[in-house]
Design a protein around this nucleic acid. Structure first.
Lengths: 199, 199, 199, 199
DNA sequence: GATGAATGAGTATTCATTCAT
DNA sequence: TATGAATGAATACTCATTCAT
């Protein structure tokens, strides 16, 4: 019996393949956009055959959807993590913390953030795209309501849409998304929107 | 007796056809996105044959580019019109006025605004997409510099990116783009970003 | 009652139209070749509408076939005219005379001769293309037989094919078709082929 | 035990496919002409899908150009081979030898020879069509000059044009191209044109 | 399992032909 | 009758997906 150098050779290989494909997809998305993403190109970049691609992903859309899923998962976890220790804090503080986190996330791979944020067609398979925004919206609405805001839902929706749009758009320019000015601007708009009691 | 209802029957027909095609293009864009826009579909929706489409537009891209052009033209004129009577006013006031104008424009056809804003691939034919944002950026930067802001360029870039992204994203949801809260939020973020001297 | 300036105004106009179309067809053939000949291009060059083209010619092929017909007719008449006064002369002399005549004809519009000779696809409508050659062949064969040649048919076929091919090909280069050397060469090959009793 | 019937299965298959496509192209050319040659028809005749055609040939023109290339290559090699042992011989003898060789080549597939010779439109991709004729012309001109002919260039041009045209045209009729009379006629016209000092 | 050649439905575009004005 | 805008079948080519090796 061998000293398991790898848990499950077969599964490990599969996993590596899947990873290579997802990374290749992300890279093609960043460099060429969804319009130019073909399964053959992805397979090439990943260094595997198209056949292998189709062993692990049933369609081109499923491939991209998985990249999206992971991104959404990370953002969603980040949301959870941020929320974790902030049960007692204000909607504004939470929003600021979340915004900072998401900004940081998007700064890692601005091109990918941009393409996943605004470059995907509206297909059934890509529904999760809006998931984080939705969660953030309802979370924020709840808090605002707890804080006695009567326009909680509306304000939350607005804030999320604004922040998301601004970040996704800024991600089209790596320098813009990285700028401190953007961060300041986003945070101050949060403040304006959330800090004060409604007028 | 009617007052010449049509100047030139021929031209009127051509014009009607062109309009029908552009409107069909806009509709297909709104409902299916660029990815699913085919020349045959546009011709179908316009109620004409593909051949007619190609009599007036040399390519699919030219067709979409014309829809884009018109939109950009309207936005650009709006920019000019807004600027016209505001030579003496502050960067903030001008930005607020422009933002209101653009918001109103995008409220007309949110879906179209969304697709033209973020749904087009980066083709040479669609270069004008960023034109208004660019003009707005340099205009704003100039004003800010006149007002003595040392971070004029950066602030202008940030403001435009934010506003543009926020509006385009909000346009994906007709109710969001129409909401008064969004307008308030955008304007207050303008205020935050532009009103005060840098800190 | 008017002093008929033109016999039949209507017919005259029609005739002018037909001529314009045929000349335009010839010109397009010369300058662009059959591959690039479109009915719209011909109508443009003729200065009339496509609709008018189709009033007088049922199809693109019919149009080209008519140009071909006229050319074949001219060549055929030339053949008749040449033959007319030569009933008593040798096969060689007749062939030389005919060759000279055809050469002269092809020198008028080398480009057209070339395109009609070798540039047309093998369509049913263009069958007359080979007519002159066929007539020449049988005529020549008869004479040779009268002169006692046992290989009359074969020799006639060979001579015609050679002369026709050589002339059509040479017509691709206006200088070549016009050269005295070509004429000398063609005539001497006639001599070689026809003058002597078979060996 | 077989002696490696196939070196590389993969390569062998590709090669077979390419051959099937080229043969199908030649056949469609022979039977229908370039005008009627479509990629789908070629693929059908070859018994493969259009997609496969495009795996090996980037365009319809490239496909036909390859058929042409092979033909031109064969003719060009034949020219070289014929020339090889004839350094000391007369222009006439060389021309006769080359003519005989080309005639033999064209007799293999008269229809293909005809279509490649006169049935292709003047496209950039088909430039090699005139290559053999050009080489023959300059080769012949050189020899004639060495032999003291003052009209070397002109005579060479005429001879080549005549022979080429005659052969291509004769190839339209399998019996004609195969006939001994044609060969005799061509050779005697060479003789006439080249043998004697100019008159 | 992996491969990549093969497939063929789908898309942009052209052009002969028709027909409303 | 003349016009030329409109039609739509046909063609070159692409790319997601399959399957024989």
């Amino acid at each position: 019996m061998q000293l398991s150098p790898r848990k499950h050779p077969k599964q490990a290989r599969s996993q590596a393949l899947v990873e290579a494909l997802l990374e290749a997809t992300a890279r093609v998305l960043e460099t060429r956009g969804y319009e130019s993403l073909t399964t053959n190109r992805v397979a090439d970049v990943a260094g595997v055959s198209v056949g292998s691609l189709y062993r692990y992903f049933p369609s081109k859309e499923a491939l991209v959807a998985t990249v999206l899923d992971r991104y959404v998962d990370r953002a969603s976890c980040l949301l959870d993590a941020t929320l974790a220790g902030m049960e007692q804090q204000s909607a504004l503080d939470v929003t600021i913390a979340v915004t900072r986190g998401l900004l940081e996330l998007k700064r890692e791979r601005p091109g990918l953030a941009y393409q996943l944020g605004v470059g995907l067609p509206d297909l059934h398979e890509f529904q999760r795209k809006g998931e984080v925004a939705q969660r953030a919206r309802s979370l924020l609405a709840d808090r605002l309501e707890q804080e006695g805001r009567s326009d909680a839902a509306e304000t939350a929706a607005t804030a999320v849409l604004m922040l998301e749009g601004a970040m996704a758009n800024a991600a089209s320019d790596p320098r813009a998304i990285a700028s401190a000015a953007l961060e300041r601007a986003l945070l101050s708009s949060c403040q304006e929107l959330l800090a004060s009691p409604e007028r």
